[in-house]
């Protein structure tokens, strides 16, 4: 088992053209084994690009191919409309990797999904995507770093630390069920709690690595969920332990102001919730190796 996507997932790539970023990543995803069934482009309906049939709209692509996930890598000005087009077409799982979408657009998209399309889950924007090792990879994660077979699920705000954590596990011969990069933007469609709940419900996932970072309150909410709703072990790492307060470290929504949102506050909350807290990604891998070794056969 895995969460959100598996080998039955059929992906439509929105905004595809011979030179698009979407095509580049879609081909890599397909080479990994992901079932890429369609592309969309209002000006290229009826074409076939690299063996991928192109439709003028997501609705047509869904109608013709039964696509049940979409992948969006279009520029920020067009991404909000693309997300809503997929939702309108009834696509239940939408991955948007686009970076630099204005925060107010994200807030409107999220509110629209919440009100009008509760059946659609958005992952991202500004995220690396999702990989169910050996089954499906939607997004920009280098598939070869993952190892199939479980038992560990991963969820991360940071993209590159997400890769690092997957890699640490793979190096130790520990497989993964699903890795979810939720992205660090102000209004992510899918949060830590959504992923932790799905991992808790997934029988094949037996332990979880959660990678947070400074800023916001998502990690604190995750801590509450871990304390009250989870019986699977969780290993956490919060990036930005040494970040100076009051500075915006990059655009990833990682802002420290006052004491709320600091790495120390988040680590303390997670420790109180019973999670194991590592101080760097390597240590998180080592802690998880111990957890996995101690799992009942």
């Amino acid at each position: 088992m895995s969460i959100f996507v598996d080998s039955t997932t059929k992906v439509v790539v929105q905004g595809i053209s011979p030179t698009s970023q979407g095509l580049y990543h879609a081909l890599r995803n397909r080479a990994y084994g992901t079932n890429v069934v369609a592309g969309t482009n209002p000006r290229r309906g009826g074409e076939v690009i690299e063996g991928i049939p192109v439709f003028a709209s997501v609705a047509e692509a869904v109608e013709a191919t039964g696509a049940n996930a979409s992948f969006i890598a279009v520029p920020p000005a067009g991404a909000p409309a693309a997300i809503l087009e997929a939702a309108e077409a009834g696509v239940p799982f939408v991955v948007c990797i686009t970076e630099f979408i204005p925060a107010h657009d994200e807030a409107r998209v999220y509110a629209t999904l919440r009100r009008n399309y509760p059946g659609t889950r958005l992952l991202g924007p500004n995220c690396p995507g999702i990989i169910s090792a050996g089954k499906a990879n939607i997004g920009i994660t280098a598939g070869e770093i993952a190892l199939a077979g479980g038992p560990v699920g991963l969820v991360s705000r940071s993209g590159t630390v997400f890769y690092q954590a997957i890699y640490e596990l793979t190096q130790k011969g520990i497989g993964q069920t699903t890795g979810v990069g939720i992205g660090g933007d102000p209004v992510p469609g899918t949060g830590f709690v959504d992923c932790l709940a799905a991992f808790q419900a997934d029988p094949e996932t037996r332990a979880v690595i959660m990678i947070g970072e400074i800023g916001g309150t998502e990690e604190e909410r995750a801590a509450e969920f871990i304390a009250t709703e989870m019986d699977k072990p969780v290993v956490c790492y919060i990036a930005g332990v040494t970040a100076p307060p009051g500075r915006k470290m990059g655009h990833a929504g990682a802002i420290v102001s006052g004491t709320s949102g600091t790495a120390a506050a988040k680590m303390a909350a997670l420790e109180r919730a019973g999670a194991l807290v590592a101080h760097n990604p390597t240590q998180a891998g080592e802690m998880m190796a111990e957890v996995v070794a101690g799992l009942p056969a």
Partner: peptide, 26 residues
Amino acid sequence: ANGAGLAMSTCDVVEQVGGKPANFLD
């Protein structure tokens, strides 16, 4: 480093092994 998360994480690790980061650069 690439990505704000990994850049922060790299600062963290340098500090943990006894070094002192001169900057954060993503």
